[in-house]
Nucleic acid binder design. Structure first.
Lengths: 131, 131
DNA sequence: GTAATTGCAAATAATTTGCTGGGTG
DNA sequence: CACCCAGCAAATTATTTGCAATTAC
């Protein structure tokens, strides 16, 4: 089963790489429909799964209800804004030493980690300071 | 709406504090039925939501499909075993300085964070070393 | 007593899957 | 031209909610 480069897959990848938010499958579906009006939701879900399994994109489980997707495949940290609810990429280095630290402290093998920070994004900070 | 101490809530809390795994709502429901045979799934969900909102338990979103719950309300890190798929608590200190570090690097406000490590749990490590 | 909470069942939301025909390599 | 993948719709899974009856305080 060699992966094929379908128009649908390209459109989905394109949507994901041109957005800084971390959309849900449903939002991606609506965007994709603007380009391929009769694309089906099943196709969107199938491609999102394929793309995240191959590491091209990242599946996030920060949201309470639906999964969110990140066009950025390589590991990085996220901030969940407690005011507006949006999820942002943090442009800070991954602290690989945490893996070794956790492994030493506990005796398990650690291959990697994710961090999600909770707080206030820049936009909400400004809004709150203004009022 | 002052919270009441119902038998159902107590049983759910008891199940959660007597298990080291991080069960799904469905698993908790099945366990609770052994004590209160006609407890309903809606009640389980409702109580899990109340208990996690009040900080008595923690809602985890590590699993791909269903949510998982942790009887431990205070913040701690988790290890997701890439072999057996189970989620374990890590008994290591929370690195509060990461919040400050992220805040300084990015200019956002950070109130806290979660880390999930990926790797191999002790049991799976032993199994693999033996073979 | 009264209002929060239950059980039940139906509703909703998110995601997956079976099938058949079409398009990619 | 083989076979992966799309579209469609129905199925499944997870969770929420409305309502009348119950129960904790």
């Amino acid at each position: 089963m060699i992966a094929r480069n379908t128009r649908q897959k390209q459109v989905i990848l394109n949507i994901l790489s041109n957005t800084t938010c971390h959309p849900t499958a449903d939002w991606i579906y609506e965007e994709a429909r603007k380009v391929i009006p009769n694309i089906s939701k099943g196709t969107v879900y199938r491609n999102l799964k394929i793309l995240s399994q191959s590491g091209r994109i990242t599946e996030l489980r920060i949201d309470k209800s639906a999964r969110r997707y990140d066009g950025n495949g390589h590991n990085h940290y996220h901030l969940k804004c407690e005011n507006c609810g949006n999820v942002f990429d943090l442009e800070i280095p991954v602290r690989k030493e945490l893996d070794q630290w956790a492994a030493e402290k506990t005796g398990v093998a650690v291959n990697g980690h994710n961090i999600e920070f909770f707080g206030l994004c820049r936009g909400c900070l400004l809004k709150i300071n203004r009022s």
